[in-house]
């Protein structure tokens, strides 16, 4: 092996796909001890929400069950990208391993997409178990249709990009952890994901018209139920704007050289 000559600059689709494959493998291997635990937590939490709400409220009307089930799925998709991902990334920044990754000769976009695939893999068992639990426990009929595929991909992609964007844009990585903790409360308690927006104060319901969480719930609900989701087109538009903004911020913060 000799490096007396300078190798040609690697670029193009082949280089990107090669880097994406290797980095996805890297991420899966890196988190292989954590991944099964995270998947079990996802299964327990999504299934727990679906079954637990029944215990809390007794007999629930079918529409309410569908709201809760699709809400539990959405919460699972959101939290992995917006809460858990940034917590891991902030730890990486603190330990210095983020810097190691940043110095690797790969497109940053390939690394981020590898991260998104990992998020997607993490949440899928939780989604399936929540849907099974709802069907078996409440005997409701889900109407799973093809839009669920782009909806899940868009929600995970959007949530991952929002997570990556703030995880790298906030200067102090310890603040990232605090923001992630805060977002858990916002997503779980104060977002119209598992319940209709009318149950919130007007000002908060108005804010959620433009925040991404309600729209994420709408597109997921549209792919899992029949006629329960409204203003689906608007929800996709809001999500597209948020995702585009998050991609722009993530690109800026990942490419930034202090």
């Amino acid at each position: 092996m000799t490096a007396a000559t300078i190798p040609a600059r690697r670029s193009g689709v082949d280089h990107w796909l090669d880097a994406f494959g290797n980095l996805t493998r890297w991420q899966v291997t890196r988190l292989r001890r954590l991944l099964p635990i995270t998947m079990v937590v996802q299964v327990l939490s999504t299934t727990g929400i679906v079954i637990g709400m029944g215990l809390l409220y007794g007999d629930l009307p079918p529409e309410r069950v569908l709201y809760l089930t699709t809400g539990a799925v959405t919460i699972s998709l959101i939290t992995v990208g917006i809460v858990m991902g940034p917590q891991i990334l902030s730890q990486e920044r603190i330990s210095g391993s983020a810097e190691y990754m940043a110095a690797l000769p790969v497109p940053r976009s390939a690394a981020t997409m590898g991260w998104m695939v990992l998020n997607l893999v993490t949440v899928l068992p939780g989604i399936v178990s929540a849907l099974l639990a709802a069907t078996l426990r409440y005997d409701v009929e889900l109407a799973v249709s093809w839009p669920i595929v782009p909806a899940v991909v868009l929600v995970v992609f959007g949530a991952t990009m929002v997570g990556v964007a703030y995880a790298y844009a906030i200067p102090n990585p310890r603040t990232v952890n605090a923001v992630a903790q805060l977002l858990i409360f916002v997503v779980f308690g104060f977002s119209p994901i598992a319940y209709p927006a009318e149950q919130l104060p007007d000002w908060l319901a108005s804010a959620h018209r433009w925040l991404p969480f309600e729209s994420m719930a709408v597109v997921i609900r549209d792919g899992l139920t029949d006629g329960l989701a409204t203003e689906v087109g608007r929800a996709y538009a809001v999500l597209a704007i948020w995702t585009a903004a998050a991609v722009a911020l993530a690109s800026w913060s990942l490419g930034r050289r202090p």
Partner: peptide, 17 residues
């Protein structure tokens, strides 16, 4: 980054490898 192989001071993140 393609023209430089860099070993930083911080430990390499290989706990699970």
């Amino acid at each position: 980054r393609q023209l430089c192989s860099y070993l930083p001071q911080a430990p390499v993140p290989i706990e699970s490898f």
